[in-house]
Write a protein that binds this DNA or RNA. Structure first.
Lengths: 232, 232
DNA sequence: GTCATCATGTAAGCCGTTACATGATTGC
DNA sequence: GCAATCATGTAACGGCTTACATGATGAC
């Protein structure tokens, strides 16, 4: 799950660990308290498997849609050394020392797509996370994500309902399960609205701005399609 | 958290591991998927520290002198459990051996009270669990539980709000945080209603109406209450 | 006599946490 | 120079899961 979140952020822009944590808090409100003790090992792991690479900090805000090739040279330590060497001095304004900026690789994008589409984890968090990155999914995968989630919610609701009117619960236990049940109903309504929105978008799809947002595409930072807030 | 749940169930009736899991699913809908791999070690641990003891399945005829025998009336599930425990032994000899029925001890009740009142864990689950057992809490502790929760929710809402209108999120990320925010608002409303209910109960305390203790205790008398439990 | 269910337990491992250790940069 | 912040990392541990191993009981 953490891997998914990290890859998702890196799919938009290069980041270093510290920043990743901030973004996680800022952008995925629900995934709040991820600690450094998780993030750094996760990044190391991802780097070891080639899903991300460490790059020298780019000129701030100067990178184009497809920043220079990222050649798969093995000499990471070389780059690192160069970066380190340059860290202290000159380097235009704030060279910002020892941070290690990561960039997602093509294989990392593949992994991201897999994790994003994969069925693993049926809890609210993992669904929320996937949905938050749903723009990277093709429309039909989006729909199937929603459908899967809906099925789970319906099943869960049945279970909870069984509890709510089967047993003789005291008022406290009862209010808890009732509140839980209502929450699930609310979630179902939400998912339903999202599904509706999906098919609607599907119909009015002739416009340019590709909804799918291909995952395998190079990353550039202006993914902000101007499609609107409303309508979900 | 599991300890708390187990002790809470055992505070009502003697149970064996397998049953505990069922009750967990049936009565605390949200704590659903607790697996045996967690429950049994937890029980062993609790037994090792003296919080619970294993009792032999009640010898039907010669029910021990110790805890007052199962009174003729009481909570349905309690009766049912007792029945189940007894039924296979009744014939003769065959004591339905392999199950290990646990009973909470005075020190276990202390531990339960501690865990229940303790501040640890500020997530929804742990709050829901505590609230579900709130009948075992003195009214003022109940109120403070709700107040603590409310404060957390308010804080969390502020954080999420910051995310929702600070960043430029795409529609998917946005709907997730918005839905999260709404959920928190809903939770706050719920907690508010509960707090109101508390003070209301407090005021009309002289009435015969269902004060918390009575609700699950059948006709006003606890099973095997001779020792203790009253005071939680 | 064998199958489903009830019942208990162990081992390995995942995924995260807290706590600790270290060091660079910035601002006063 | 000192503190606060930024930044990276390691170690130990926690709690829960899955998978596995074992066995009793009742039904057919």
């Amino acid at each position: 799950m953490l891997d998914l979140a990290i890859l998702g952020l890196l799919a938009d822009e290069d980041l270093h660990g510290y920043e990743i944590r901030k973004q996680l808090r800022a952008r995925l409100g629900f995934l709040v308290n991820v600690s450094f003790g998780s993030i750094y090992p996760a990044l190391s792991r991802l780097e070891a498997t080639g899903a991300v690479v460490a790059v020298e900090p780019p000129d701030p805000e100067a990178l184009g849609p497809a920043p220079p090739p990222v050649p798969p040279t093995g000499s990471l330590s070389g780059e690192w050394a160069a970066f380190r060497a340059r860290r202290h001095g000159v380097g235009r304004g704030r060279a910002r020392r020892s941070r290690k900026v990561y960039r997602i690789t093509p294989s990392g994008l593949e992994l991201f797509a897999e994790l994003l589409a994969g069925a693993g984890g049926d809890d609210a968090r993992s669904f929320g996370l996937r949905l938050a990155f749903a723009r990277h999914l093709p429309p039909q995968a989006r729909l199937s994500l929603l459908q899967r989630r809906r099925a789970q919610l319906v099943e869960r609701l049945a279970e909870v309902r069984r509890a709510v009117d089967g047993d003789d619960l005291d008022r406290y236990a009862r209010t808890v399960v009732e509140h839980t049940a209502e929450g699930i109903e609310r979630d179902i309504g939400w998912v339903d609205r999202l599904m509706e929105g999906e098919t609607h978008v599907e119909q009015s799809k002739k416009g340019p701005a590709a909804t799918p947002e291909r995952v395998a595409a190079g990353h550039g930072r202006d993914r902000r399609t101007s499609q609107g807030r409303r309508s979900l």
